[in-house]
Structures are given as C-alpha cells and as structure tokens.
C-alpha cells in the first residue's frame, strides 16, 4: 500500500520533471514544475514532515511559480526558437553527462543506504511544536537573517525591474541604436 503511494508520487514527479525539461512552451514547463513540486510535497508527508509539505505547496507553487507565470506573460516569452536543434551534439553530450552523473549518484546512495533500517518515526521530534522550537530557539539567528535577506531581495528586485526614469535616457537610446538583431 505504502509502496503504491510512493511509486505513484515518484512516477508523477519523474514524468513531470522530464516534461519541464523537454517542453518548448514555457507555460507548460512551469505548470509541469507545479506538478513535480506537489508530488514532492506528497513525498515530504511520507517522510514525516507535513509542515514542509504545506510550506512547499504554499510557497513554491503558490508564490514562486505564480511569479514565474507573471514574468512569462509579461515578457510574452514565445516557444523557444532554438538555436540548437534537438539532436545536436550539445543535447547528446549533456544527456550523456546527466546519465553518467545520475548513475554514479544512484550507485553511491544505493550502496550506502540499501540496508539502512529507518528508525520508527518519533512523533515528539517531528511534531509541529518541536519544529517551532527549533525555528524560534535553536535557529533564531538564521531565521532573522532570512527575513533580512528577503527584504533585501525584494528591494533589489523592484529596483532592478523598474522602468528607466525618462524616455530620453542617453544610455537607453544608445542601446536601442546599436541594438542586437531582434
């Protein structure tokens, strides 16, 4: 039973991850990444951390990927007009590299953890109360710093993405004049 659930989540995650990587349309890629992340959230629940699963769905699929969709629609990104064809040397080379790396990692993990007996889940150590205690006591300083980091990131992002002040900005005109082939 548990194995079936694991196989379901793992299969969904793998298939949608492959769609993310191979599909030319960025909107389809993004929605497929949503499916991968939700399947991974299911795996998080199976590993005994429902807090992270909820966070994954709220933060990743709810906020970050919506931001991606916003930007895709704002920039009107079309399907990739590929400068490299599907079966170019780079495609094959990267595929071989990924396969070799995956094989090495799988072998490493398999030989190291194939016969590791997992201790039964300790509800005390994995409860929401203990997560809160970790977050606000043991890791209080990193927690505050992550808040500062988010503030800095938001300020930087809104500064970088803002429109140039005036249309007759000398830099902007020069850029348009010597513009690259569109």
């Amino acid at each position: 039973m548990l194995l079936t659930v694991f196989a379901l989540f793992a299969g969904v995650a793998l298939v949608s991850a492959i769609v993310v990587v191979l599909h030319r349309n960025p909107v389809v890629s993004t929605m497929s990444l949503v499916v991968t992340l939700v399947a991974t959230a299911g795996l998080f629940i199976m590993l005994g951390s429902p807090f992270l699963a909820a966070l994954q769905i709220l933060l990743y699929t709810g906020a970050i990927l919506v931001l991606f969709l916003f930007v895709i629609m704002l920039l009107n990104v079309q399907r990739e007009r590929t400068t490299t064809t599907r079966m170019s040397g780079m495609f094959i080379g990267a595929g071989i590299c990924a396969l070799v790396f995956a094989g090495a990692l799988v072998r490493l993990f398999w030989s190291a953890y194939a016969d590791t007996a997992v201790k039964p889940l300790d509800p005390e150590a994995f409860s929401l109360v203990s997560v809160a205690r970790d977050l606000f006591a043991t890791y209080l300083l990193p927690f505050e710093m992550i808040g500062l980091l988010l503030l800095v990131a938001v300020v930087a992002a809104s500064w970088v993405a803002k429109k140039p002040e005036s249309a007759d900005d000398p830099d902007a005109i020069e850029v348009v004049k010597q513009g690259e082939p569109r």
Binding site: A13, T82, T83, A94, V106
Partner: peptide, 18 residues
C-alpha cells in the same frame, strides 16, 4: 538524484532564460 540530474540536463540544454 535522478530528479537532480534531469534538472541539470535541462539547465545545460535549454536556451530560454526562464
């Protein structure tokens, strides 16, 4: 690790920044 390698493959072969 398989998911990681799929992602690495995508980062190497895709041409669109997004």
């Amino acid at each position: 690790s398989v998911l990681f390698c799929i992602g690495a493959f995508g980062a190497l072969t895709r041409r669109s920044g997004i």
